[in-house]
Amino acid sequence: MPSSPFITRSTSVSAIMFKVLLALVPGIALYVWFYGPAILVSLALASVTALATEAVMLKLRNRPIKPFLSDNSALLTAWLLALSIPPLAPWWLVVVGTMFAISIAKHLYGGLGSNPFNPAMIGYAVLIISFPLHMTHWLSPLGLGQAEIGFADQLRYIFSGALPPGLTLDAVTMATPLDTLKTQLHMNRPMQEITAMPIYGHLAGHGSEMVAVGFLLGSVYLFANRIITWHQPVAFLGTLFLTAEIFHMVDSGHYATPMFHWFSGAAMLGAFFILTDPITSPTTPKGKLIFAAGAGFLTYIIRVFGGFPDGVAFATLLMNICVPLIDAYTQPKVFGHKAGKK
Protein backbone atom coordinates (compact mmCIF):
# COMPACT_ATOMS: atom_id res chain seq x y z
CA MET A 1 0.00 0.00 0.00
CA PRO A 2 1.48 3.35 -0.98
CA SER A 3 2.14 5.89 1.74
CA SER A 4 2.59 9.64 1.71
CA PRO A 5 3.88 11.72 0.10
CA PHE A 6 2.06 10.87 -3.11
CA ILE A 7 3.73 13.48 -5.30
CA THR A 8 7.35 13.95 -6.34
CA ARG A 9 9.19 16.53 -8.32
CA SER A 10 10.22 14.98 -11.58
CA THR A 11 13.98 15.17 -11.40
CA SER A 12 16.14 12.11 -11.69
CA VAL A 13 19.70 11.03 -11.22
CA SER A 14 20.13 10.65 -14.98
CA ALA A 15 18.82 14.19 -15.60
CA ILE A 16 21.29 15.60 -13.09
CA MET A 17 24.22 13.67 -14.55
CA PHE A 18 23.16 14.70 -18.05
CA LYS A 19 23.21 18.35 -17.08
CA VAL A 20 26.73 17.95 -15.73
CA LEU A 21 27.75 16.42 -19.06
CA LEU A 22 26.18 19.38 -20.85
CA ALA A 23 28.10 21.78 -18.65
CA LEU A 24 31.36 20.18 -19.83
CA VAL A 25 30.59 21.02 -23.45
CA PRO A 26 31.99 24.61 -23.54
CA GLY A 27 35.31 23.38 -22.15
CA ILE A 28 35.41 20.51 -24.64
CA ALA A 29 34.57 22.86 -27.53
CA LEU A 30 37.45 25.16 -26.62
CA TYR A 31 39.68 22.09 -26.23
CA VAL A 32 38.90 21.12 -29.84
CA TRP A 33 39.44 24.72 -30.97
CA PHE A 34 42.92 24.93 -29.51
CA TYR A 35 44.17 21.35 -29.81
CA GLY A 36 42.24 19.76 -32.64
CA PRO A 37 39.67 16.95 -32.51
CA ALA A 38 41.85 14.24 -30.93
CA ILE A 39 40.19 14.77 -27.56
CA LEU A 40 36.87 13.69 -29.09
CA VAL A 41 38.43 10.31 -29.84
CA SER A 42 39.44 9.89 -26.19
CA LEU A 43 35.97 10.94 -25.06
CA ALA A 44 34.31 8.45 -27.38
CA LEU A 45 36.69 5.64 -26.39
CA ALA A 46 36.18 6.31 -22.72
CA SER A 47 32.39 6.51 -23.12
CA VAL A 48 32.11 3.18 -24.92
CA THR A 49 34.44 1.50 -22.44
CA ALA A 50 32.59 2.95 -19.46
CA LEU A 51 29.17 1.82 -20.67
CA ALA A 52 30.45 -1.66 -21.54
CA THR A 53 32.22 -2.05 -18.21
CA GLU A 54 29.19 -0.74 -16.37
CA ALA A 55 26.93 -3.26 -18.11
CA VAL A 56 29.25 -6.16 -17.35
CA MET A 57 29.64 -5.15 -13.71
CA LEU A 58 25.89 -4.73 -13.26
CA LYS A 59 25.35 -8.16 -14.77
CA LEU A 60 27.98 -9.70 -12.47
CA ARG A 61 26.41 -8.00 -9.46
CA ASN A 62 22.89 -9.08 -10.43
CA ARG A 63 21.67 -5.53 -10.67
CA PRO A 64 19.09 -4.32 -13.18
CA ILE A 65 21.07 -3.06 -16.16
CA LYS A 66 18.74 -0.60 -17.85
CA PRO A 67 18.04 1.91 -15.05
CA PHE A 68 21.69 2.07 -14.01
CA LEU A 69 23.13 2.15 -17.50
CA SER A 70 20.89 5.10 -18.34
CA ASP A 71 21.76 7.06 -15.20
CA ASN A 72 24.61 8.79 -17.11
CA SER A 73 26.98 8.42 -14.15
CA ALA A 74 29.36 6.10 -16.02
CA LEU A 75 29.47 8.54 -18.92
CA LEU A 76 30.36 11.37 -16.57
CA THR A 77 33.22 9.36 -15.08
CA ALA A 78 34.39 8.55 -18.60
CA TRP A 79 34.39 12.18 -19.71
CA LEU A 80 36.16 13.48 -16.62
CA LEU A 81 38.84 10.83 -17.01
CA ALA A 82 39.25 11.44 -20.76
CA LEU A 83 39.67 15.17 -20.11
CA SER A 84 42.48 14.37 -17.65
CA ILE A 85 44.43 12.17 -20.05
CA PRO A 86 46.62 13.47 -22.90
CA PRO A 87 44.59 13.29 -26.12
CA LEU A 88 47.38 11.54 -28.00
CA ALA A 89 47.63 8.77 -25.43
CA PRO A 90 47.38 5.28 -26.96
CA TRP A 91 43.86 3.85 -27.04
CA TRP A 92 44.55 1.15 -24.45
CA LEU A 93 45.55 3.79 -21.90
CA VAL A 94 42.07 5.32 -22.02
CA VAL A 95 40.47 1.89 -21.97
CA VAL A 96 42.50 0.58 -19.02
CA GLY A 97 41.93 3.74 -17.00
CA THR A 98 38.19 3.76 -17.63
CA MET A 99 37.79 0.06 -16.92
CA PHE A 100 39.64 0.42 -13.65
CA ALA A 101 37.60 3.46 -12.67
CA ILE A 102 34.24 1.82 -13.34
CA SER A 103 34.91 -1.72 -12.19
CA ILE A 104 37.26 -1.32 -9.23
CA ALA A 105 36.71 2.24 -7.99
CA LYS A 106 32.94 2.24 -8.50
CA HIS A 107 31.37 -1.20 -8.58
CA LEU A 108 33.58 -3.09 -6.17
CA TYR A 109 32.66 -0.47 -3.59
CA GLY A 110 28.92 -0.96 -4.20
CA GLY A 111 28.21 0.96 -7.37
CA LEU A 112 26.42 4.26 -7.79
CA GLY A 113 26.32 6.24 -4.57
CA SER A 114 28.61 3.95 -2.58
CA ASN A 115 32.08 4.70 -3.94
CA PRO A 116 34.22 6.61 -1.43
CA PHE A 117 36.68 7.84 -4.07
CA ASN A 118 36.05 9.78 -7.23
CA PRO A 119 36.30 7.02 -9.88
CA ALA A 120 37.73 9.30 -12.57
CA MET A 121 40.49 10.45 -10.25
CA ILE A 122 41.27 6.85 -9.29
CA GLY A 123 41.54 6.05 -12.99
CA TYR A 124 43.88 8.98 -13.47
CA ALA A 125 46.00 8.02 -10.46
CA VAL A 126 46.37 4.45 -11.68
CA LEU A 127 47.47 5.63 -15.12
CA ILE A 128 49.96 8.23 -13.96
CA ILE A 129 51.58 5.80 -11.56
CA SER A 130 51.61 2.87 -13.98
CA PHE A 131 52.30 4.63 -17.27
CA PRO A 132 53.95 7.95 -16.43
CA LEU A 133 55.61 8.25 -19.83
CA HIS A 134 52.41 7.80 -21.83
CA MET A 135 50.73 10.35 -19.65
CA THR A 136 53.00 13.07 -20.96
CA HIS A 137 51.86 13.01 -24.58
CA TRP A 138 50.11 16.33 -24.37
CA LEU A 139 49.45 17.87 -27.75
CA SER A 140 50.96 21.24 -28.46
CA PRO A 141 48.34 23.88 -28.95
CA LEU A 142 47.68 24.41 -32.66
CA GLY A 143 50.20 26.82 -34.10
CA LEU A 144 52.77 26.32 -31.34
CA GLY A 145 54.34 22.91 -31.97
CA GLN A 146 57.30 22.16 -34.19
CA ALA A 147 54.98 20.20 -36.36
CA GLU A 148 51.30 19.44 -36.62
CA ILE A 149 49.59 16.27 -37.72
CA GLY A 150 46.12 16.00 -39.15
CA PHE A 151 43.19 14.22 -37.57
CA ALA A 152 43.75 11.08 -39.66
CA ASP A 153 47.35 10.87 -38.47
CA GLN A 154 46.27 11.49 -34.88
CA LEU A 155 43.77 8.62 -35.18
CA ARG A 156 46.42 6.33 -36.63
CA TYR A 157 48.82 7.19 -33.85
CA ILE A 158 46.25 6.61 -31.10
CA PHE A 159 45.32 3.18 -32.43
CA SER A 160 48.61 1.95 -33.89
CA GLY A 161 51.32 4.09 -32.38
CA ALA A 162 52.68 4.98 -35.83
CA LEU A 163 53.50 8.58 -36.73
CA PRO A 164 53.86 9.93 -40.27
CA PRO A 165 57.40 9.27 -41.59
CA GLY A 166 59.99 11.80 -40.49
CA LEU A 167 58.10 12.97 -37.39
CA THR A 168 58.93 12.17 -33.79
CA LEU A 169 56.52 12.29 -30.95
CA ASP A 170 58.43 15.15 -29.39
CA ALA A 171 57.70 17.26 -32.43
CA VAL A 172 53.95 17.13 -31.97
CA THR A 173 53.70 17.08 -28.18
CA MET A 174 55.10 19.22 -25.43
CA ALA A 175 55.15 19.38 -21.67
CA THR A 176 52.25 21.09 -19.98
CA PRO A 177 52.65 24.68 -18.80
CA LEU A 178 52.72 23.50 -15.18
CA ASP A 179 55.42 20.95 -15.99
CA THR A 180 57.43 23.37 -18.07
CA LEU A 181 57.42 25.91 -15.28
CA LYS A 182 58.66 23.30 -12.81
CA THR A 183 61.52 22.06 -15.01
CA GLN A 184 62.57 25.51 -16.10
CA LEU A 185 62.61 26.75 -12.51
CA HIS A 186 64.80 23.78 -11.64
CA MET A 187 67.14 24.98 -14.32
CA ASN A 188 67.28 28.29 -12.49
CA ARG A 189 65.69 30.34 -15.23
CA PRO A 190 63.98 33.41 -13.86
CA MET A 191 60.21 33.40 -13.72
CA GLN A 192 59.79 36.34 -16.06
CA GLU A 193 61.81 34.73 -18.79
CA ILE A 194 59.87 31.47 -18.47
CA THR A 195 56.45 33.01 -18.66
CA ALA A 196 57.51 34.95 -21.73
CA MET A 197 57.87 31.65 -23.59
CA PRO A 198 55.31 31.15 -26.37
CA ILE A 199 53.49 28.34 -24.57
CA TYR A 200 52.28 30.83 -21.98
CA GLY A 201 49.29 33.02 -22.64
CA HIS A 202 47.61 35.78 -20.71
CA LEU A 203 46.96 33.98 -17.43
CA ALA A 204 48.61 30.61 -17.74
CA GLY A 205 49.28 28.21 -20.60
CA HIS A 206 48.31 29.32 -24.09
CA GLY A 207 45.23 27.34 -25.09
CA SER A 208 44.91 25.39 -21.85
CA GLU A 209 43.93 28.59 -20.02
CA MET A 210 41.02 28.99 -22.43
CA VAL A 211 39.90 25.41 -21.84
CA ALA A 212 39.85 26.29 -18.13
CA VAL A 213 37.74 29.34 -18.99
CA GLY A 214 35.40 26.97 -20.83
CA PHE A 215 34.92 24.89 -17.69
CA LEU A 216 34.34 28.09 -15.72
CA LEU A 217 31.64 29.05 -18.24
CA GLY A 218 30.04 25.62 -17.91
CA SER A 219 29.83 26.09 -14.17
CA VAL A 220 27.36 28.94 -14.71
CA TYR A 221 24.95 26.35 -16.09
CA LEU A 222 25.54 24.11 -13.06
CA PHE A 223 24.84 26.98 -10.67
CA ALA A 224 21.78 28.07 -12.61
CA ASN A 225 20.36 24.56 -12.35
CA ARG A 226 21.33 24.29 -8.69
CA ILE A 227 23.35 21.17 -9.33
CA ILE A 228 26.34 22.42 -7.39
CA THR A 229 26.61 24.85 -4.49
CA TRP A 230 29.18 27.59 -4.05
CA HIS A 231 30.93 25.83 -1.18
CA GLN A 232 33.46 23.58 -2.92
CA PRO A 233 34.44 25.93 -5.78
CA VAL A 234 34.84 28.96 -3.50
CA ALA A 235 36.75 27.07 -0.82
CA PHE A 236 38.97 25.26 -3.33
CA LEU A 237 39.80 28.23 -5.55
CA GLY A 238 40.03 30.53 -2.54
CA THR A 239 42.54 28.34 -0.73
CA LEU A 240 44.52 27.72 -3.90
CA PHE A 241 44.59 31.48 -4.52
CA LEU A 242 45.59 32.35 -0.98
CA THR A 243 48.33 29.74 -0.77
CA ALA A 244 49.71 30.76 -4.14
CA GLU A 245 49.48 34.44 -3.24
CA ILE A 246 51.44 33.96 -0.02
CA PHE A 247 54.26 32.10 -1.79
CA HIS A 248 54.19 34.52 -4.69
CA MET A 249 54.44 37.52 -2.35
CA VAL A 250 57.38 35.99 -0.51
CA ASP A 251 59.31 35.09 -3.66
CA SER A 252 57.77 36.07 -6.96
CA GLY A 253 60.86 34.86 -8.78
CA HIS A 254 60.15 31.25 -7.87
CA TYR A 255 56.44 31.02 -7.31
CA ALA A 256 53.82 31.63 -9.99
CA THR A 257 50.87 33.97 -9.58
CA PRO A 258 47.56 32.76 -8.13
CA MET A 259 45.98 33.34 -11.54
CA PHE A 260 48.51 31.00 -13.09
CA HIS A 261 47.45 28.28 -10.67
CA TRP A 262 43.76 28.94 -11.21
CA PHE A 263 43.96 28.56 -14.97
CA SER A 264 46.55 25.78 -15.15
CA GLY A 265 46.01 22.06 -15.15
CA ALA A 266 42.78 20.72 -13.76
CA ALA A 267 42.05 23.51 -11.26
CA MET A 268 38.84 24.71 -12.89
CA LEU A 269 37.74 21.20 -13.82
CA GLY A 270 38.39 20.15 -10.23
CA ALA A 271 36.66 23.12 -8.66
CA PHE A 272 33.38 22.75 -10.55
CA PHE A 273 33.20 19.15 -11.75
CA ILE A 274 35.32 16.91 -9.53
CA LEU A 275 35.23 18.27 -5.99
CA THR A 276 31.50 18.92 -6.43
CA ASP A 277 30.77 15.23 -7.01
CA PRO A 278 28.18 14.72 -4.26
CA ILE A 279 28.93 11.04 -3.76
CA THR A 280 32.54 11.57 -2.78
CA SER A 281 32.31 14.89 -0.95
CA PRO A 282 30.83 15.80 2.43
CA THR A 283 27.14 16.60 2.76
CA THR A 284 27.27 19.39 5.33
CA PRO A 285 28.00 22.99 4.27
CA LYS A 286 30.85 23.32 6.74
CA GLY A 287 32.16 19.92 5.66
CA LYS A 288 32.16 20.93 2.01
CA LEU A 289 34.23 24.01 2.87
CA ILE A 290 36.78 22.03 4.87
CA PHE A 291 36.97 19.34 2.20
CA ALA A 292 37.53 21.71 -0.70
CA ALA A 293 39.87 23.99 1.22
CA GLY A 294 42.01 20.96 2.06
CA ALA A 295 42.02 19.96 -1.58
CA GLY A 296 43.03 23.48 -2.64
CA PHE A 297 45.96 23.53 -0.26
CA LEU A 298 47.10 20.02 -1.17
CA THR A 299 46.82 20.80 -4.88
CA TYR A 300 49.25 23.67 -4.49
CA ILE A 301 51.67 21.66 -2.38
CA ILE A 302 51.70 18.71 -4.77
CA ARG A 303 52.04 20.96 -7.82
CA VAL A 304 54.88 23.04 -6.46
CA PHE A 305 56.76 20.62 -4.21
CA GLY A 306 55.64 17.20 -5.43
CA GLY A 307 56.80 15.01 -8.26
CA PHE A 308 53.59 14.90 -10.30
CA PRO A 309 52.64 17.34 -13.06
CA ASP A 310 49.37 18.32 -11.40
CA GLY A 311 47.97 17.97 -7.89
CA VAL A 312 44.19 18.05 -8.30
CA ALA A 313 43.67 14.30 -8.60
CA PHE A 314 45.75 13.33 -5.59
CA ALA A 315 44.46 16.20 -3.53
CA THR A 316 40.90 15.08 -4.29
CA LEU A 317 41.62 11.47 -3.39
CA LEU A 318 43.37 12.43 -0.17
CA MET A 319 40.40 14.54 0.86
CA ASN A 320 37.97 11.79 -0.23
CA ILE A 321 39.48 9.64 2.53
CA CYS A 322 38.51 12.25 5.10
CA VAL A 323 34.87 12.63 4.02
CA PRO A 324 33.21 10.37 6.64
CA LEU A 325 35.23 12.02 9.39
CA ILE A 326 34.45 15.52 8.16
CA ASP A 327 30.76 14.67 7.92
CA ALA A 328 30.68 13.23 11.42
CA TYR A 329 32.25 16.32 12.97
CA THR A 330 30.38 19.00 11.07
CA GLN A 331 26.78 17.99 11.72
CA PRO A 332 24.69 21.15 11.88
CA LYS A 333 22.29 21.80 14.76
CA VAL A 334 18.76 20.52 14.27
CA PHE A 335 15.63 22.70 14.57
CA GLY A 336 14.65 22.84 18.22
CA HIS A 337 18.14 21.93 19.44
CA LYS A 338 19.76 25.30 18.90
CA ALA A 339 18.94 27.00 22.19
CA GLY A 340 22.31 25.86 23.51
CA LYS A 341 23.11 23.98 26.66
CA LYS A 342 22.27 25.89 29.75
Partner: peptide, 29 residues
Protein backbone atom coordinates in the same frame (compact mmCIF):
# COMPACT_ATOMS: atom_id res chain seq x y z
CA UNK B 1 -3.09 12.83 -10.90
CA UNK B 2 -0.86 10.63 -8.78
CA UNK B 3 1.33 8.46 -10.97
CA UNK B 4 3.30 5.87 -9.03
CA UNK B 5 6.85 7.10 -8.36
CA UNK B 6 9.66 5.78 -10.58
CA UNK B 7 11.75 2.96 -9.18
CA UNK B 8 14.13 4.09 -6.45
CA UNK B 9 17.80 4.53 -7.28
CA UNK B 10 20.66 4.63 -4.76
CA UNK B 11 21.25 7.82 -2.80
CA UNK B 12 23.85 10.02 -4.47
CA UNK B 13 24.23 12.25 -1.39
CA UNK B 14 23.13 15.30 -3.37
CA UNK B 15 21.54 16.74 -0.17
CA UNK B 16 18.53 18.22 -1.92
CA UNK B 17 16.65 16.64 1.01
CA UNK B 18 18.79 18.59 3.48
CA UNK B 19 18.06 21.80 1.61
CA UNK B 20 14.29 21.40 2.02
CA UNK B 21 14.04 19.78 5.48
CA UNK B 22 12.11 22.14 7.81
CA UNK B 23 13.48 20.29 10.84
CA UNK B 24 17.04 20.86 9.59
CA UNK B 25 17.80 17.17 9.67
CA UNK B 26 20.12 15.17 7.41
CA UNK B 27 17.59 12.91 5.72
CA UNK B 28 20.25 11.19 3.64
CA UNK B 29 22.13 10.12 6.78
Amino acid sequence: LFPPPPAAMPCIRCTRCVDVCPAELQPQE
